[in-house]
């Protein structure tokens, strides 16, 4: 009797959440139309997105989280020329540029990283958001290979370290190119970069 109730309860949870995700997708598909270069293809979720779409109150499935974290980590490539650091001045532009991939954007232009939307970087720039932590003075962490790898991985696929992070997967989702990522890395690490020149 008890067993049966538990089984029903479990079945309910599994079944209802499965139905939910599909229902949400179906509703979105009917509620949206292609616009310019953005199509309803984008409404489909990959495994990670589906996992990270539970309302806050939902209980976390730790085993699944570990699986997805490992999958994210294993897919991060090392920069093809083994070089993690590009040109900080170009990186600064990538960090300030909030455009890219919206249907109102020009698909011929390169995408921005929009880092300032969520992070403080150059302490002299006042128009910064705070969805993420301040990265001012990031270069003080040094340029050890571990630090470079950590940051590269974080930018490529943030979920490798923090599952369901709010930050976009700049590398894995193809938002930024490898070269743009190297440039942004330089913007974070280079001692000459305004991120590191002055402390607030």
């Amino acid at each position: 009797m008890m067993m049966k109730t538990i089984m029903q309860f479990l079945a309910f949870i599994i079944f209802s959440s499965a139905v939910c995700a599909d229902e949400v997708y179906d509703v979105l598909l009917e509620s949206m139309t292609d616009k310019n270069f953005v199509t309803v293809e984008r409404l489909k979720q990959d495994e990670l997105q589906a996992f990270c779409s539970q309302p806050r109150s939902a209980s976390a499935d730790e085993a699944r989280a570990a699986e997805l974290r490992a999958a994210a980590l294993s897919d991060v490539p090392i920069p093809s020329d083994q070089n993690y650091l590009g040109d900080w001045q170009r990186g600064e532009k990538v960090a300030s540029n909030g455009r890219g991939l919206q249907y109102s954007d020009d698909p011929e232009q390169e995408n921005g990283g929009n880092c300032y939307a969520c992070h403080q970087l150059d302490p002299a720039e006042v128009a910064y958001g705070n969805l993420g932590p301040s990265l001012s003075g990031y270069g003080a962490r040094g340029q050890s290979i571990a630090m470079l790898q950590y940051t590269w991985t974080k930018l490529w696929n943030t979920h490798a370290y923090n599952i369901c992070s709010h930050m976009p997967r700049f590398g894995a989702a193809g938002i930024l190119t490898e070269q743009q990522l190297r440039d942004v890395m330089a913007f974070l690490f280079d001692p000459q970069s305004p991120v590191n020149r002055t402390q607030p």
Partner: peptide, 10 residues
């Protein structure tokens, strides 16, 4: 559910 639905390149 829509409010928490993550999708798209970002």
């Amino acid at each position: 559910n829509l409010f928490y639905y993550r999708a798209g390149p970002h």
